[in-house]
Every structure is written in C-alpha cells, then in structure tokens.
Amino acid sequence: MPRPPPRARFLLSTWLLALLLGPPSASASPGHFAADAPLRRTDPRDTNAEGPRAPHDPRSALSLRDDTTSAASPDGTRLPGMSGVPVPSAPEDLPLSTGAWVAHGGLALLPLGGVWGATRVGGDTRLGATTAETAAGMLAGYLPSRLLFLRPTTPGGGRWADLEVAAFGGGLLFTPPLAALGTWGMGELAFGRSQDQTDAYLGALGGAAAGTLLAAAVDGLLSKLAEPSTRLKSARALIGLALIGSGATLGYQWAGGGPRSNQHTR
C-alpha cells in the first residue's frame, strides 16, 4: 500500500489530534471571562467571595474596638466604653507670675487697713477691740461666704452654671446679716453696750454688705490673674472673708457701735 505524501500525513495527524481533544470550550476561554463576567469587589469578610482570604488577626479587631469605644483619661490611659463622654482635664497647678504674687499681697492688706480704719471712724479707738469684732464677723459669716467663692472644676455651662448662680446668690443674701450679727454681738457683749443698738446693727449690716461685694470682686480678679494655676485658692477665700469682717466692723463703729465714754476715746 503506497504511503500518503507528507502533506497528507500532517493534515491527518492534525485532524486526529483535534478529534481527541475536542472543540475548545467557550466557557473556558480567558477572553470570555474578561469580556462577559461582571466585576465583583472582593470583601475579606464575605464568606462567599472567591479567592484566597487573608488570615484573620484577632488583635486587629480588638484594637479597632478600643479606638472607637473608649476615651482618654486625664493621665493618658484609655477608658473602655466611654465613647462620646467628655473627660475633664486635670487643672494645671503652674507657678504664679510675679504680678499675681504682688496682687495677692497688696489686696491682702485691705482687710488690715479696714481694721485700723475702724478705730478712726468710731468712738472706740482700741485696735484689739476692732480686731476681735472683725474676727467674730468672719467666723459668723464663714459658712455662707463659701458660696461666694465656689468655682466649677470643669467650666462648660449647663446645669453647673445654674447651680453656681444659685450658690452665689445665696452667698450674697446670707453672708452680710450673719457677719454683721457676729460683729455686733462681739461689740455689745465684750466691749460695752451701744447707745442705739439698732443703728449699730444696721451700720454693721451695711458695712458687711459692702465688704461682701468687694470680696466677690477681689476673688474674681485674683482668680483671673492666677489662671490656669490653682495655687492660693484658700488664701483668696480668706482675703475675701477678712474683707467682709472688716467691712462689718467699719460700719458698726461708724454707726455708733460700742460705748462712747472718755476712757475709750483717748
């Protein structure tokens, strides 16, 4: 049997190979995937997504939860579960400036000047008597005067502002009569009765009211000069309280409080 020519053998081999492999599938064509398959964004959290998934790191989820549900405390630590809650910052206790120290020292001399001035405006020239009357007024007005110097730890308005206004009003209302009562009582009981006790008390009440307003103004001024430091807070309250007591003594002596005999006017 004669052998087919080489060209016929090549065509026959190609046809047999194509018959064995079969026709190329359209679904297996790379070009088909590129042209017809819809684009799909792979999400690593989607369990139905195809393709390799990155290994899950539990520490990443923990750090994400801590960042979104916690707030920073004043010392820099994290507070779990405090998202959206304002954390008050700790007040700074910085050194006072030279001007603030001078202002505190200068205004502290005002009550001392008031005690000495009380010996000049009234009939009782004894410095010990006016000092005792001032101390009694300070002691009697101590509790209500604390409302005058009440300051919020974290200023920001809201409910605390309402409480601060109410407390300040209570301090203005109750401090003068109590301080005047202390000064008037000390003068009447320890240093002799006044000729007109009603006028003496009214004078002490007017002086204590003026001293209360001055104390509130002085405390506000010194607090402004000391910001943001909290130093000498108690000293500022003591200066204000001394102004109230010395004011009550000045009014008491000026209105005729205490005895008016020759032995006290020498």
Rank of each mutant, 00 (worst) to 15 (best):
T183R: 01
D46R: 02
G117Y: 15
E227S: 12
D162N: 15
R78I: 05
Q197L: 06
P24G: 02
S234T: 15
I239M: 10
E164C: 08
P58Y: 12
L96K: 03
T153D: 05
T68D: 10
F33C: 12
G51N: 08
A129S: 06
S83P: 13
F149R: 02
A28E: 05
Y252H: 04
A100K: 13
V87D: 01
E133F: 04
E227I: 03
T175P: 09
G22A: 08
D75L: 10
L181E: 02
S70A: 09
A49L: 01
G258C: 07
G192C: 01
T130D: 03
P91G: 09
L181K: 02
M186N: 07
L238N: 04
S60R: 13
L205S: 04
G169K: 07
A242I: 11
A18S: 11
A49Q: 00
F10A: 05
T119Q: 07
R7T: 14
I244N: 09
G123Y: 06
T131A: 09
T230G: 01
A209E: 06
L96F: 01
L12I: 13
H104W: 13
G245A: 12
Q263H: 15
R151Q: 10
A255F: 11
R159F: 14
L205K: 03
L127E: 06
G128P: 03
S13E: 04
F174A: 14
V121H: 06
A179P: 00
